[in-house]
Simulated assay, not measured.
Amino acid sequence: MSIKRYGVSGSTGTGGQHLPFAKAVEAGGWLYVSGQTPMKEGEIVEGGIIEQSRLAIQNCLDIMTNAGYQLKDVVHVKVILTDARYFQSFNKVFSEFFAEHPPARICAVADLVVDCKVEVDITCYNAERV
């Protein structure tokens, strides 16, 4: 079994800092997408929980798609919210993306190391990629 890393060079975070981890890692048909925040071009996009949730999820999906996986391949999602009051709004956005193929999920409340409201990571599986 080989391991493939996506987005190792050139990944930047807030303030243009180099990020010392892969955007995603693939092994044995599994794809693990690193936690994504509502960031574009290395900067957090301002907005409420709805806008930030859409962008964080979309960032995950963009990485997943670039690695050759599809929405139906998503088996698990981890969500970190900075405020429990965001839970219902996040669920509405989550349903927009995953209503047809709902994955397993965990959602927790915690502080984040960047100034945003949400972070999302996904795990995918595709037996054809083993």
Rank of each mutant, 00 (worst) to 15 (best):
Met1Leu: 07
Ser2Glu: 15
Ile3Lys: 06
Ile3Trp: 07
Ile3His: 06
Lys4Val: 12
Arg5Tyr: 14
Ser9Glu: 14
Thr12Asp: 07
Thr14Gln: 10
Gly16Lys: 08
His18Asn: 14
His18Trp: 14
Pro20Asn: 13
Pro20Trp: 05
Pro20Arg: 11
Pro20Lys: 10
Lys23Trp: 15
Gly28Leu: 08
Gly28Ala: 07
Gly29Pro: 02
Trp30Phe: 15
Leu31Tyr: 00
Leu31Trp: 00
Leu31Val: 01
Val33Asp: 01
Ser34Gln: 10
Gln36Lys: 13
Thr37Ala: 12
Met39Arg: 11
Lys40Arg: 15
Lys40Met: 14
Val45Ser: 03
Val45Pro: 10
Val45Trp: 11
Glu46Pro: 14
Gly47Phe: 10
Ile49Thr: 06
Ile49Glu: 04
Ile50Gly: 15
Ile50Ser: 11
Ile50Gln: 12
Glu51Ile: 07
Gln52Asn: 05
Ser53Ile: 13
Leu55Trp: 03
Ile57Tyr: 03
Asn59Cys: 10
Leu61Tyr: 08
Asp62Leu: 04
Ile63Pro: 03
Ile63Leu: 00
Thr65Ala: 09
Thr65Trp: 06
Tyr69Val: 00
Gln70Val: 01
Leu71Ile: 07
Lys72Pro: 01
Lys72Asp: 05
Asp73Trp: 04
Asp73Thr: 01
Val74Pro: 01
Val74Ala: 06
Val74Arg: 03
Val75Glu: 08
His76Trp: 12
Lys78Phe: 12
Val79Tyr: 03
Thr82Ala: 11
Tyr86Lys: 00
Phe87Arg: 10
Gln88Ser: 14
Gln88Pro: 05
Ser89Glu: 15
Phe90Ser: 03
Phe90Ala: 01
Asn91Leu: 14
Asn91Cys: 09
Lys92Tyr: 11
Lys92Val: 10
Val93Phe: 07
Phe94Thr: 03
Phe94Tyr: 13
Phe98Lys: 02
Ala99Ser: 11
His101Leu: 04
His101Tyr: 11
Pro102Gln: 05
Pro103Arg: 01
Pro103Ala: 08
Ala104Trp: 07
Ile106Ala: 14
Cys107Glu: 02
Ala108Cys: 15
Ala108Val: 15
Ala110Phe: 07
Leu112His: 07
Leu112Gly: 01
Val113Met: 08
Val113Asp: 10
Val114His: 09
Asp115Arg: 12
Cys116Met: 12
Lys117His: 14
Glu119Gly: 02
Glu119Met: 06
Glu119Lys: 08
Glu119Ala: 11
Ile122Val: 09
Thr123Lys: 09
Tyr125Phe: 06
Tyr125Leu: 02
Ala127Met: 02
Arg129Ala: 03
Val130Ser: 14
Val130Gln: 14
